[in-house]
Design a protein around this nucleic acid. Structure first.
Lengths: 219, 219
DNA sequence: ACGTGTTGGTTCGTTCATTGAACCTTGCGT
DNA sequence: ACGCAAGGTTCAATGAACGAACCAACACGT
């Protein structure tokens, strides 16, 4: 589709996949969405992507059923982009890609991914070695590693420094992380606003994303 | 490097990885290399990639230690491009990407990947559910599925129709697959010519690529 | 009523990468 | 000497990405 006529010749699922997510920036948008980024401006400042390109990518990803554009407030009409199941299903790919990048090109540890229930670091396939199950994406806890800049310029990177679950909506707003925040902890945007009507490939409960029982792994 | 200054800002292993293998065509070249393609011309006809782009990608991949350029005959000096361990380590990524593509966008099954030792189809992470181990890449057997064109135009696709191991060098030459091939089965190119001096990230025994004992999976 | 700020875009000229065709080089084989 | 094959390089045309500017809707303070 996006990458055009040459990939179409290929009879290969990998080529099909790359037609959709193989363009520049696309997988980084999906990564950010997994990290909890949902708003146009947050993607923009965190990725440093040109506005036009971001708009194009969000549209393609929405059209392909990887993101869903969802209105989260009416008064000034605002939409957010949320991963669908199809998008969440890219986690294993991104996980192994990141692992490869770190093992072969990374100097120091940038982030840790653990099973939130027990604190164990994830294995190479996103499994928890202790609990013997493939950890569902919302149960993955992400914490900064020693290699990560402790005082980044943009507020999104700053918000991503706090330990957090994957898919947990990012709140960029807390004015200064120095304690002068006068707001209530919950600013009115519910953590998982469920129950809205949705399309065929729509967003289901995030917990259903890539959950797999231990029985799916060799025991 | 290749994708330029914007990705560099990112403190993220995924971004680092995409700097290397995120360009157009690159992952398809690696896929073909896993399938056993080794020669410039075979990549060319199988991918339908412009010559200049292929040359650029092969050079980048070689420079990054993912492929190794290796002379396989002297009389007319000919080189082949072989995956290093670093390249073989991309198999889990390509596997999960292909799985995602098939599950979400594929109509019919194009290829099967099985554990050669027992014939069991691989699980989502490249593991053999029966033998309870992550199958080393050279022990993966690839066979065509029902969705694959039985009479493709180019000789590389034709050669890839036969059941084969991953990394097994592709022989495009067998004049017609109708049995009139006068050659010996082993054409003198040893399957894994080991022992040559090599750089820090050089090609090791293919079997060591991503072999993992069952102990690495939760049991 | 009026300016100001925030969010989420679109438009547009410049730059960079991809494409496809043509051409080149080395070393056969005859 | 001629033609052919493998593995490239060169080049003009196209397309995609970049980044700065502009735009629109709406909230808010005064």
């Amino acid at each position: 589709m996006a990458l055009g006529k040459d990939y179409v010749t290929q009879e290969c699922s990998i080529a099909r996949a790359l037609e959709i997510v193989g363009e520049r920036w696309t997988l980084l948008v999906v990564r950010d969405a997994l990290y909890g980024v949902r708003r146009y401006n947050d993607f923009l400042v965190h990725l440093g992507i040109p506005r036009a390109v971001l708009a194009a990518r969000l549209q393609t990803l929405t059209a392909e059923g990887i993101l869903e554009k969802r209105r989260y407030q009416e008064s000034p009409p605002r939409d957010e982009y949320v991963l669908t199941d199809r998008g969440i299903a890219l986690w294993p790919t991104l996980r192994s890609l990141g692992l490869w990048g770190r093992e072969h090109f990374g100097e120091s540890r940038l982030r840790w991914f653990r099973h939130a229930a027990c604190g164990t670091e994830l294995g190479p396939y996103g499994e928890c070695p202790v609990c013997a199950l493939v950890v569902p994406v919302p149960d993955v806890e992400m914490t900064p590693g020693p290699g990560l800049d402790r005082d980044p310029a943009d507020p999104v990177s700053r918000a991503l420094l706090a330990p957090r679950r994957l898919l947990e909506p990012l709140d960029t707003d807390p004015r200064k992380p120095d304690g002068t925040d006068p707001r209530k902890p919950d600013d009115g945007r519910p953590r998982e606003p469920e129950g809205a009507g949705r399309g065929p490939d729509g967003v289901a409960d995030a917990a259903s994303g890539s959950g797999r029982s231990a029985g799916d792994l060799p025991v």
